[in-house]
Amino acid sequence: MRNLWFSAVAVVVAALVFAAARLIGNPYVYFAGYVVLQYVVLATAWNILGGYTGYVNFGTAAFFALGAYATVVLHKIAPATPLPAMMLVGGVLSALTGLGMGYLTLRLRGTFFSIATLAMAVVVQTLVTNWNFVGGSRGAYIIRPSHAPLFSGDYTQYLFLVMLGLCVVAIGIARAIEKSRLGFGFAAIRDDEHAAEASGVPTLRLKLIATALSGGLMGMAGAPLPYYVTYLDPASGFNLSYAVNTIAMPLIGGTSTWAGPLIGAVLLGTLQQVATVTISSALSLLIVGVLLVIFVIAAPRGIVGWFRR
């Protein structure tokens, strides 16, 4: 019942955001807003595994790019596929990858999983770079429709709306998990895996669920990317900044609740959009890195922690 209420409120908030964007009417709002929303999804997805279960995933870029490249492939072989369907394909692909990775490494200490995800990002990039069908290292061009389907407006507006919808879904999932049996199981694993197992928690299965869910949402967030950038090459699809941002945002916002990644992503995402325009993109990334280090040292509970006991 409470979940239903929350969903209703989330949908209303999302509708208000979209209405506000339409009211402002500046195309840059959609363009910059899309990136912020994409980070809300990525940070929320990362937090399901990292914040709730305590397993650090450094391979965001790989899951994200898998989703993006799934769209590139679909665009080539079945260009008529609607975007939400492409997102579903990208999500499933990333979820399965997460499951496979997890199955091989999640039986070990969490550190090994983290190292494996870091290495995986390099390998998936190697594979894509060597795969000529999706453009290899040269990259691929995607021609996007000029108008949004379903309503009148630019296609960027449609991408913005789709990402807004995915935000609602991702945050809804994260919040539903938090107060559920699954969420308590995740938290038990994070606190003490050995004790969790001894309390009846099927730790391996739960970790696999978290990895698949988290990876799947990252893949879905990546799927619309080719239409947003219209030109996708491995260097941009696998950019390290995705991994850093998705770790920095939850840790800065606070990892214990769904609100943390949301706050972190909106603050940091907006800051970067402003800094990229006013200063430079490299410097704005440096700011994120420095903020991450400062927060993990000085504010281990994140911004959310300031408002709670």
């Binding site: 990292g50 305590g54 650090v56 450094f58 969490g110 550190t111 983290s114 390290l240 991994a243 850093v244 770790i247 920095a248 840790l251 990892t255 490299a282 410097l283 990334l285 440096l286 890195g289 420095v290 991450l292 280090v293 993990v296 040292i297 281990p300």
Partner: peptide, 25 residues
């Protein structure tokens, strides 16, 4: 603080990233 797992990893990851961006700059 007994908090080496998540935040300790993130700390080193942050250093990795900062040094890379600094060298690029």
């Amino acid at each position: 603080r007994g908090d080496a797992s998540i935040r300790g990893l993130a700390f080193f990851f942050g250093i990795l990233f900062i040094s890379e961006v600094a060298l690029v700059l």
